[in-house]
């Protein structure tokens, strides 16, 4: 498989602090990869290493099958990026800021700036100095800069930062559209619902280590509802439910039975009646849906 991003044992140490620790990341061409982590987990450091802004202490990174660095080398004509908070030259207009990017990308197409201004809904602010832009419009300018040269790979750190709800939806649709055109996207975000809606795969980084990757099936499973059953005698309850044709699995950590059958979720009262008749009445019965946020928080130790 061709990978747009491939890292091998990528590490960055600051003395005893392992900011990024042996991260093996593989993002396939055309994927939208959500990169999740708490503050200080190593997301931005990883992104900076991928972009050649920070030299790794160990390991290597390849973007679009070209090694990154040393000395800032990389396939930058084919990569767009937005790192941390957006920034721009405050004395220059939105158009001038983008014009600088166009020229530094060596693009001959002078119309590219106007097109990306239109694409990011920045037309009313095109001739306004960047220093007067709101946070949201500055974010749009940062995204415009990342998209200007129609890159094959987008590396975006918190792309929805500072955007209003309508802007968040707009950018989500924009990114989804780009992905449909074959653009690979790696995006970090704190807005887990955004990542959940957009990403085709998710990586969770914690204390510098990539601790879990969720593919589309796992994410779908996370979104699935389940009936959680607690009883004084879980073994007897499981036997009764299995005998009735339910697939009740024991979740020892939560001291519960988990039933994923659609009929159990649709009619939990039936399950309750069955257990009462079997002499092992439920002490708790509830339909639950674990979302990405809960999964993420539990994985990172925030939720016990």
């Amino acid at each position: 498989m061709n990978y747009a991003i491939e890292t091998s044992g990528l590490s960055k140490f600051y003395g005893d602090v392992h900011a990024v620790d042996a991260v093996d990341l593989r993002v396939g061409v055309g994927e939208i990869y959500g990169f999740l982590g708490l503050n200080g987990a190593g997301k931005t450091t990883t992104i900076r290493v991928l972009l050649g802004m920070i030299a790794p202490s160990a390991g290597s990174a390849c973007l679009l099958e070209q090694a990154v660095g040393p000395d800032g080398r990389g396939p930058w004509a084919r990569v767009g990026h937005l790192v941390e908070s957006p920034s721009a030259y405050p004395d220059l207009t939105t158009r001038e800021n983008l014009e600088i990017s166009r020229r530094l990308h060596g693009m001959a197409d002078a119309g590219a700036v106007s097109r990306v201004i239109e694409q990011l809904s920045l037309s009313p602010y095109a001739d306004r100095k960047a220093g007067t832009l709101s946070m949201g419009n500055l974010q749009r300018l940062g995204l415009a800069r990342a998209l200007l040269h129609r890159p094959e790979l987008l590396i975006l750190d918190e792309p929805a930062n500072g955007l209003d709800p309508a802007g968040v939806v707009e950018i989500r649709e924009l990114l989804a559209g780009l992905a449909r055109e074959g653009v690979t996207i790696l995006m970090s975000s704190h807005i887990l619902t955004e990542v959940d809606r957009l990403a085709t795969r998710i990586g969770i980084i914690h204390q510098g280590r990539l601790i879990e990757e969720l593919d589309a099936d796992t994410m779908e499973e996370l979104r699935a509802q389940r009936l959680m059953v607690q009883a004084r005698d879980l073994s007897a309850a499981q036997t009764a439910l299995t005998a009735a044709g339910y697939s009740a699995e024991l979740d020892r950590a939560r001291e519960s039975l988990v039933i994923k059958d659609a009929r159990a979720i649709a009619a939990p009262d039936e399950v309750a009646r069955l257990l009462v008749e079997a002499g092992t009445a439920p002490t708790r019965l509830g339909v639950e849906q674990e979302n990405l946020e809960e999964h993420f928080l539990r994985l990172t130790g925030v939720l016990k």
Partner: peptide, 13 residues
């Protein structure tokens, strides 16, 4: 102006 990161990963060296 925190613009340094904008010219570190570009075709222009």
């Amino acid at each position: 102006d925190r613009t340094v990161k904008e010219f570190l990963a570009l075709p222009t060296s």
